[in-house]
Design a protein around this nucleic acid. Structure first.
Lengths: 340, 340
DNA sequence: ATGAAAGCGCTAACAC
DNA sequence: GTGTTAGCGCTTTCAT
């Protein structure tokens, strides 16, 4: 095998006839060494190779250049896009990222917090999930940044999200402006703050435009119900019940697509008979037929804002504006499913 | 703050009036301590809390209970499903997983190999990508398992994949059996072994059934071309060129969906006029309209096989059958896009 | 500008 | 069954 064995600092020191301290200084460019020494050490390194043993460095420095991402399920385009962007950001800064899928399981989340604590991560990014954050379990006071997850007020826990209320409002308003009078919503029953806020935006829009919020048109799916299939079945039932409706706001794009298919299969035309709008703007909303109007979240910005925040917190800086909560604007995307 | 500060082994030893060695033995359940001692130590731990400092443990043991996953882009349902399953598997075994997106960039891949090496991962999983594997860069001889990536013959590098040749054959055969005579293929031009094998399956099927493999019906997209849009445009061009065809094998589901939309928008009916089949069986193939026939890869099994293999290699075991290459069967899924 | 030495928290070889 | 001790590779304080 052609493995370079990689020397330790001690071995380099011996070969270069300097002390380990000096080698360490050169490697980390910490000053207090002469150019001459630098060259001598560098030559040895170039010749024999050196790779930092991060275990040792972490042990000594009590930090690891590593962060953890807690996420419900990475097999979800919206989450995986966030994770992708976060990982990109931290790769640039020389951090590695632990991926931690919780499957919405509290036990797994707790286990991961412990593991991350044990592995000395310097910070944690939490995507979605409940208000409860098992920070009490941690032995070190590392910063935590939440995305789309409203944490209880904890020390060193920050929060960035899209404006879901505004998104819910815009989506509903779009349906109203396109002439819908009886607008249904398909969302989730669990009190995830995100869905809650979208629902409130929906209600407020109806109110502002003097439309009634019919209880029987507010479909709150069970947490266990899959986005697409669950919604499809729910809408099929709604159709069979003969309760009239002419617009549907689905609180994510897979749900919206479920609505479209359910309607189409029941010979209800979208958008002629019923208009539909989704949320998130994932690729399928653009690719499907008819294409889905939706609310675009600026995922990349969200990821960058959250990552930048976490990084500065890990560096011991206070966020510029000293805010613990950041809200990013969303945008209405008009496509075929809400055409007049 | 309610942070338990977590004692070190040394502190526990003092409180329990035993030596650090004994505490270590109790914690790791390594035997050579009395039940009485165990209880005494455990009591202290229960009372004050203890969290292993994995940096120290890794340093000492030269292993980290950590693996890296190298993947082109996690924002791709097929990859993210693999990653999800791999992560699940290793979570059960108390391993953490570093996520490493390469964006198909060799430089990023190399940087990640170095970083993983530095962070003392015990093994690496490589998903997709080129034959080249920068193993020369590593300073330790840790096992590597590739999924859908055919590595050059390296020591300690293993390989598991679906039977892509068979998949290509089955897909093409399905079109043939449903009456197609002029069957196009849309794939990728880069010599990714996976696509290459699917293409060969296609060619062999045509041959076996005595059909011609028209060059002008073999569309090989550029690597940079996005799956959906790229395919859509390519098929639009094909339609405009007036070259006749009655079946299309797209080598992944997003491409297949691009085919369907391009045809539909050109008033060519699927499956009546042209039949279409995809590959991978991701959710969209089931959800879209008309639903897509496709080749199902047993992703979960793939992930588990690869993970189990990596785990046993990390444990220093030789794989049972001493094979370095495993091929898993695929399955034809018949849906509407190839109906007669 | 450089070196000696302590010590981060842990495991394991060795002694009893 | 238990304790003593060395040492994994690194950074950093304190000398000089």
């Amino acid at each position: 095998m052609d493995k370079k064995k990689s020397l330790s600092i001690k071995e380099i020191a011996k070969l270069a006839n300097v002390s380990v301290a000096t080698v360490s200084r050169v490697i980390n460019n910490n000053g207090r060494f002469s150019e001459e020494t630098r060259i001598r050490v560098q030559k040895i390194i170039d010749q024999y190779g050196y790779r930092t043993n991060m275990a040792a460095k972490s042990l000594r420095m009590a930090k690891s250049k590593t962060v953890g991402i807690i996420v419900p399920n990475i097999n979800n385009e919206w989450f995986s896009l966030l994770v992708l962007e976060i990982e990109k950001y931290f790769f640039e800064k020389n951090y590695s990222v632990f991926i931690c899928n919780t499957s919405q399981t509290e036990a797994k989340e707790i286990a991961y917090f412990q593991s991350l604590d044990s592995k000395m991560v310097d910070g944690i990014m939490c995507i979605s999930g409940s208000e409860e954050l098992p920070t009490g379990i941690m032995t070190r006071d590392i910063p935590i940044v939440c995305i789309d997850r409203k944490p209880k007020n904890h020390h060193n826990v920050y929060y960035v999200e899209s404006n879901h209320y505004s998104g819910g409002y815009l989506a509903t308003e779009e349906l109203i402006k396109k002439g819908c009078k009886r607008i249904a919503i398909v969302s989730r029953n669990k009190s995830l703050s995100v869905n809650q806020q979208r629902l409130e935006g929906y209600r407020q829009a109806l109110k502002d435009y003097g439309l009634e919020a019919y209880d029987e048109l507010q479909i709150l799916l069970d947490v266990s119900s899959p986005n697409y299939d669950g919604t499809k079945h729910a809408v099929e039932k709604l159709v069979q019940s003969n309760i009239p409706f002419d617009g549907v706001f689905a609180t994510n794009d897979w749900r919206a697509y479920g609505v479209v298919v359910a309607l189409t299969e029941n010979h209800i035309r979208v958008p002629q008979d019923v208009k539909v709008i989704g949320f998130d703007d994932i690729p399928i909303s653009y690719a499907c037929h008819p294409s889905l109007s939706t609310i675009h979240q600026n995922t990349k910005l969200l990821a960058q804002k959250a990552s930048g925040l976490l990084l500065s917190l890990m560096n011991g800086e206070n966020p510029v504006d000293n805010e613990k909560h950041y809200i990013l604007p969303v945008e209405l995307i008009q496509r075929d499913s809400t055409q007049i």
